[in-house]
Design a protein around this nucleic acid. Structure first.
Lengths: 245, 245
DNA sequence: GTAGACTCGATTGTCGACAATATGCTAGCG
DNA sequence: CGCTAGCATATTGTCGACAATCGAGTCTAC
């Protein structure tokens, strides 16, 4: 599990401005997810039920159900009797996320290339354009968000609601992982690779699209520093008795 | 959504023998899942919190969290202010489940054929043997359960914990779907198709294994009567104003 | 100065009670 | 005789309070 505690002694939430009007459960969920994937809540931060309740103007129990849902989606991890924390996926977990995407997404393209209408393609192109704009404006948050949404758009075209949900979860997790493991300087996002995929889809070139997608995912993954630096026990082994096991 | 109410006036739970010793949350979950996939709780049955609480010797709140989890996994559907019911996937949802499996599982075999050790293969063979025995004994419940577990075994060999979880959920849902849509007489389960897949894996024949897997899933799906007979709203449209929309 | 035990504060887990809601039934009315 | 409105009941949703638990910091002994 290896929760990476944010360094300066468990930074907790700072109370937001008093927007104390009861928010419905869905909204609370959305807003927390938004805060996480835009890394206003960095991995490792504790989510204190009472404070969240106060912020959203609801009681703890409602916050609790939302946190449970987030836990199921692995966006937060809850430690029994200790609380809920924004998830900090381990290296292995991060690899699993990319692995799952490599299984789903290329295969998904089969249906996409078959079923995509002209309208769909136009929507994809429009999206790519938005991404380009965001990149030009150097709006890192928008880049990450749009980059994720592109893949969801594909799932939507494929027309399988269940897979769409799965990819939503995987996409959020990917955001978290990028935040955690990205060398913070470079954008680490696809330079126009999405555009190429759309081209292939338009040509109904399943083979090409799939290959591009795999390459794309590999590219994103390899741009991260997915080496186990922070996995406590193993490191100790390696540090003090290198080579001998 | 189209909940198929079990015909004779919403059959509710009949209280079990008084095993009133507090069960931990995990156990409650397991037992309910077990009851669902072995169709001791048929699709559509209402799960009344208080009665479950009594059965398991816990308070309603604990049952509540378990039901929430089951809802997230789509094994039960909750209607606000009305309660939780064992899920009864619509035809579309059923198709989506098979669609998702067709995406995941053939692709999964790439890693399986690469990584399967002799030990793994032996385990698979042993499992197939168990399935054969269950089929010989005509133990329908065991057949369904083992049939699902075979696929989980594959996911385990592939070594991606996330994908394993996804398949677990898909597998449970598949059980539900089989119960719902199977022509109740015939077993509708793979006649030895699993064995063939293992053969292909042993030969490291990715291509063959994938094809067999797709064929296998198609076979299971097509053995079901996945025609929309019971989808309320659309049927009404179609029945009373055919052609005109 | 360090290790270990202890206390205290903060936070979560659980429970019971009450309010809100939907459903089925009954009675009254057209 | 059918239909609507209202009532009664069963079940869920929500809240507040209390108990359990954990971590941090402190204090003491060596």
């Amino acid at each position: 599990m290896a929760i990476v505690q944010t360094s300066p002694g468990r930074r907790a939430l700072t109370k937001k401005s008093a927007a104390v009007e009861a928010a419905p459960e869905g909204e609370i969920y959305e807003r927390i997810v938004g805060a996480i994937i835009e890394h206003r809540l960095p991995p490792g931060t504790q989510l204190i039920e009472e404070k969240l309740a106060a912020v959203f103007g609801v009681t703890r129990s409602r916050v609790r159900t939302v946190l449970a849902r987030l836990a199921h989606e692995k966006l937060v991890t809850v430690h029994r009797n200790r609380g809920a924390f924004v998830a900090a996926p381990s290296v292995d977990e991060a690899r699993d996320v990319f692995g799952a995407r490599r299984l789903l997404e290329p295969a998904l393209l089969e249906q996409v290339t078959e079923r995509a209408t002209a309208r769909d393609i136009a929507a994809l192109r429009a999206h790519v354009k938005k991404e380009r704009a965001a990149r030009a404006a150097n709006d890192r948050q928008a880049i990450i968000r749009l980059s994720g949404e592109f893949h969801l758009l594909l799932a939507q075209i494929a027309g399988n609601a269940l897979v769409l949900e799965m990819l939503k979860e995987l996409s959020s997790l990917t955001c978290l992982i990028i935040i955690l493991y990205d060398a913070p300087a470079l954008p680490a996002c696809p330079h126009e690779e999405h555009g190429g995929i759309v081209d292939a889809i338009e040509k109904r070139d399943l083979r090409g699209a799939s290959e591009l997608m795999v390459k794309h995912l590999d590219h994103v993954e390899s741009s991260l520093r997915l080496v186990s630096e922070q996995s406590a026990e193993i490191d100790l082994q390696e540090v003090f008795a290198p080579g001998l096991r």
